[in-house]
């Protein structure tokens, strides 16, 4: 690429500004989940014993497994960006694909978890749940809303990463122009951070 072409090509690009834009969006996500963590903290403060009893229904093993899956998917995403920066397109694509596989695995585990709860009658509005104490009903309400919204973020993250993989394959996202993949990575890591807090608050309090 000649230097003139380079200048024209980069004339309207501000990678740092793009990343800042992504961060500003992530702050709104922080407040979205922050509000839910606020609700959680107050209700847990008011119903401590009942939250502990309700949390016994959740599988610590499943929660731990999903934590390990999500942490590893964050690693593969960070490595995918590093690989592309090092001009290793194929390696980056493989790592992006691995991230998607981990994300899918996470959701499959979540599906089994929720199905098991459903069969035990532990879902919003179920008779079995409604007979429990208010604190336990609140715990499961928060559990479904918070892990549900997080799961939705995992699905959206998968769609974004898939789109970026397509861009990488078509050479629209390259070693020279990778800010979009970085933005996708930032989103994915935020989803990971939210899970880092959800995990001890729901699975490790029994």
């Amino acid at each position: 690429m000649s230097s003139t072409e380079e200048t024209i090509h980069h004339a309207h690009r501000d990678d740092e500004g793009s990343r800042m834009g992504m961060w500003l969006f992530l702050f709104t996500e922080l407040l979205l989940f922050g509000g839910m963590f606020l609700a959680y903290s107050v209700y847990r403060y008011m119903h401590q014993a009942e939250f502990h009893i309700a949390a016994k229904e959740l599988s610590t093993l499943m929660g731990t497994l999903n934590t390990l899956i999500l942490l590893t998917s964050s690693l593969t995403m960070a490595l995918a960006i590093a690989a592309l920066q090092n001009n290793k397109k194929v390696l980056s694509l493989i790592l992006q694909g691995t991230t998607l596989v981990f994300a899918l695995w996470f959701l499959i585990n979540k599906y089994f978890e929720w199905s098991a709860k459903y069969h035990h009658g532990l879902f919003p509005g179920a008779d079995v749940l409604m007979e429990k104490s208010p604190g336990q009903i609140l715990f499961f309400g928060l559990y479904y809303v918070m892990t549900g919204l997080h799961g939705l973020h995992v699905i959206i993250g998968m769609l974004i990463i898939s789109y970026m993989s397509l861009g990488t394959a078509k050479n629209k996202i390259t070693a020279d122009n990778h800010v979009r993949l970085e933005a996708a990575g930032l989103y994915w890591h935020l989803v990971d951070i939210i899970w880092i807090f959800l995990f001890p608050l729901f699975y490790l309090i029994s």
């Binding site: 380079e6 590093a82 690989a83 090092n86 020279d176």
Partner: peptide, 9 residues
């Protein structure tokens, strides 16, 4: 070309 970043894994 912009200088390549050598990202350490």
């Amino acid at each position: 070309m912009s200088k390549p970043i050598h990202s350490n894994y």
